[in-house]
Write a protein that binds this DNA or RNA. Structure first.
Length: 396
RNA sequence: GCACCGGUGGCGAAGUGGCUAACGCGCUGGUCUGCAAAACCAGUAUGCGCGGGUUCGAUCCCCGCCCGGUGCUCCA
């Protein structure tokens, strides 16, 4: 997770450490006859007591009427759609001895109990995959709101599953990749992150290797621009007064960036606004209409962008090295892309030395030698750029 | 079979009842460069799954169909 720049949760709750809370919740429901015990010692939730059932998923409950697809007697439930809160012990299963009997909690009660314990009866946001809306989240709402008599989560955030190369991801399709797999193939962590966040969460995205290459190129452009801004800000030849037209455009696009994120996290639109700024600023610099006064707002835009997207700072090499080290330790060295090892075989110091030699050769107009060095570095994944103010380089 | 979500250029992907259908990548040509790279410019969907309908006007609304995803039993 940290490889993708994802923050760790403040609290990671474990179901097995919160059995008491779950039992208390079931007892509270039982006191209002919402939870009931069956002959085998299991507890079920009486959906008839919660008229709002189905409000999240918009399910038509007629489809799961009593006895339609489930043998009611077999489960001893009062209604087929009632769901388990607590399951009586079965041989070979973990169980706890509690005031409501010996057994283990049902799946849904765990989440209700832990969410309310840490966040209170009402909280802002509950997330989950699209597959969980029904029945899991629906059942959480029913249990929690019946127990607390308050609204449970105010907003629900359901992410769509992604497609991989146009198909659902599955081991049998052979399109199941872990983050480590992708890193070992030579893709950058930042590109993976950027691709994943570039499509709004509500939409199903098609994750492709071509898409990863696209993200890599897009990040290169953004990082290149960030570097260019830094260099430009230090350029003493630049006029101090700002280009008002450009500044207004940047302000406009920065507002659009934030508006897009405010609009249900539309990351695709937010991203577009930043690229608009990049292009406009590049044009201004290229046409010598850029002033030092323009730097401030653009720097603010980049900072705001990166506070969310977090791809400008290059930590890719270290992360890839981590993946390589892992593969070597696990005996999976064969999975490491050759380019990755080649790229890691040259140090920054060695690159600087070669570039200095090349610059020297070019001054003497020995272009053959200069180009030879450039090609040598290129083979090691190092790209040289000759700018007006000197040579810069980056790893591919 | 039923319900919900989606189907936009070569690819990824925004968006809107009527303005040139964003943005990124790719590709082609150009500027710059010793040559490249980077950056910039121009071009690249007469078109938004298919067929009807509503409307002065639909990619955007309605209906049907096709395709993809998810759910509709248990487990988590």
């Amino acid at each position: 997770m940290e490889w993708l720049g994802i923050e760790r949760p403040e609290i990671i709750a474990r179901a097995t450490e919160n059995i008491n809370e779950m039992v208390a919740l079931i007892e509270r429901l039982a006191s209002e006859d919402i939870a009931y015990k069956t002959d085998d010692g299991s507890w079920y939730f009486r959906i008839a007591k919660f008229p709002d059932y189905g409000k999240l998923s918009g399910k038509d409950l007629e489809g799961i009427e009593d006895g339609a697809r489930v043998d009611v007697d077999e489960y001893e439930k009062d209604a087929a759609r009632d769901f388990a809160l607590w399951k009586a012990t079965k041989p070979g299963e973990a169980s706890w001895e509690t005031s409501i009997g010996t057994g283990r909690p049902g799946w849904h009660i765990e989440c209700s109990a832990m969410a309310m314990k840490h966040l209170g009866p009402s909280f802002d946001l509950h997330a989950g995959g699209e597959d969980l809306a029904f029945p899991h989240h629906e059942n959480e709402i029913a249990q929690s709101e019946c127990a607390s008599h308050q609204p449970f989560a105010r907003h629900w955030f359901h992410v769509h599953f992604l497609l991989v190369e146009g198909k659902k991801m599955s081991k049998s399709e052979g399109n199941f990749y872990t983050l480590r797999d992708l890193l070992l193939k030579g893709y950058r962590a930042s590109a993976i992150r950027f691709l994943l966040v570039s499509v709004p969460y509500r939409h199903q995205m098609n994750f492709t290797f071509e898409g990863l290459a696209e993200s890599t190129a897009a990040i290169d452009r953004l990082r290149g621009f960030a570097r260019r801004m830094e260099a430009t800000a230090k350029n003493p030849a630049l006029p101090v007064e700002r280009n008002e037209e450009l500044d207004a455009l940047v302000a406009d696009k920065l507002a659009a960036f934030h508006a897009a994120l405010q609009n249900d996290l539309n990351t695709a639109e937010a991203r577009a606004a930043i690229f608009d700024i990049v292009r406009a600023a590049n044009i201004a610099i290229d046409s010598n209409t850029f002033g030092l006064g323009n730097v401030e707002r653009i720097a603010k835009a980049l900072a705001d962008f990166d506070a969310v997207f977090d791809v400008l700072t290059d930590r890719d090499a270290a992360i890839s090295q981590g993946a390589v080290a892992w593969a070597q330790a696990e005996g999976r060295a064969d999975d490491i892309a050759p380019e990755l090892l080649v790229a890691q075989s040259i140090t920054d110091e060695e690159i600087e030395t070669l570039i200095a030699e090349r610059t020297d050769a070019r001054k003497r107009r020995n272009f053959a030698r200069g180009d030879a060095i450039r090609n040598e570095l290129l083979e090691k994944g190092v790209l040289i750029e000759d700018g007006k103010d000197g040579v810069t380089w980056k790893r591919k």
